[in-house]
Design a protein around this nucleic acid. Structure first.
Lengths: 216, 216
DNA sequence: CGCGCGATTGATTCGGCTCAATAACTGTGG
DNA sequence: CCACAGTTATTGAGCCGAATCAATCGCGCG
């Protein structure tokens, strides 16, 4: 994200940044809080979620090493409209508003970068919208597994490199925990995936994309 | 949107802009087409929709007088990822990329304006996402009616000032036509709304927001 | 005036949610 | 190191919402 700042600016950035370690479950920010800076995930994973009217969690986005977080609220000068919570021990640095804006003035490039990020997020959100409205849970689950794998990669044993509770998984696809579990069990029975606690290994990606797509 | 440009720039804008009349049903752009400019709705209404995997329409956004359209694709240098179609006879002016970018360079304000638009769209999309995932059709329909009224206002007879087919309405809330119609009929029977062809009049907004909210 | 599309209603089916019960797992303190 | 308590995961049964299919109706338009 900041990789092509001029050298001196990059230094300045690095100096002033405050790295902090967040433990699993620790909260970066809550919905409604005032945004005074942005978060860069140096290492780790964070879930960004909103609460529905009945208090149910809805995961809006998952964020990992190298991603930036919280710029929507900062750029629009509003409060955060989601919660962010570390999914594992994470190293995250905080860039205060003043510093970011100063750098942005000197580097129009950087503004453009944020613009691009926003565009990408918007596109992604709209695509998810359509899928949520039109696809069945079964298809969405299949698709989610593929997306998780391509986003977070795999560990040595080929399982997807992220640990989410079944509730989290359900909250990504927008369903209840039980239906999600049933689908995972079914996929497992059919040899499409393997389950190992929170780790999921995709055995037959083609089958999954078949299930997740139009077909069937 | 462009209201606080310096005078000479505003003139330049006005001179060069090409106003065009779109008839009802006429297409502004298709998904996948290359974006070479943005559209400003001078007068009229436009629906922006995507197609699901089975070809079903999903309305992403409704746009009216004073709104701007197509900047996501242009700013990110990608193709349009939705379709746009006039809902009624509309006067729309087209601002070519070159001119817009030139003006943006001279007016950082304008870039900031777009940034704000994007932030707003993103926020909106994420909120819709949550509602789609968590609320029932009945609640979403109730909420949509209220939103339509506050967005498009009412005519002299207090009916909402927009004409949408039942299919369009269904596609906004993310359901099939029949369930939507049933709910409208129910609301009508209960005296919550009145139906007059494509025009809908809200009789009991409080009841509607009750239905659309947590309660019930 | 009739054709055809959009709107409406009914009947049926199916998916997904909820509730309830059990099992596995996690971390904790004795 | 083990027992316990409190989660988290899993499975089963029943119900309800919503999609689908089918048929009719109404209306606008040619």
């Amino acid at each position: 994200m900041f990789s092509d700042l001029k050298n001196n600016e990059l230094e300045q950035f690095t100096e002033e940044k405050q790295s902090q370690v967040y433990k699993k479950g620790q909260v970066l920010f809550n919905e409604g809080e005032h945004a005074n800076g942005i978060y860069c995930i140096h290492k780790g994973k964070v879930k960004v979620y909103k609460l529905g009217d009945e208090g149910r969690e809805q995961i809006v986005r998952l964020v990992k090493d190298g991603d930036v977080l919280g710029y929507r609220a900062l750029l629009s000068g509003e409060t955060f409209n989601a919660y962010a919570e570390a999914l594992e021990e994470s190293i995250i640095c905080y860039i205060p508003k003043s510093q970011l804006f100063k750098t942005m003035e000197q580097n129009p490039e950087l503004s453009m970068r944020f613009m691009t990020l926003l565009c990408g997020d918007l596109k992604g959100a709209e695509e998810r919208l359509v899928k949520l409205a039109q696809k069945k849970v079964r298809e969405r689950v299949a698709e989610m597994l593929l997306i998780l794998r391509s986003t977070f990669g795999t560990r040595e044993d080929q399982s997807i490199d992220i640990q989410l509770t079944r509730e989290d998984l359900a909250s990504i696809v927008g369903t209840a925990t039980e239906p999600l579990i049933r689908l995972l069990s079914e996929f497992k029975k059919d040899g499409v995936i393997e389950l190992n606690g929170k780790y999921i290994k995709i055995m037959d990606p083609d089958r999954l994309s078949q299930i997740g797509d139009v077909l069937e």
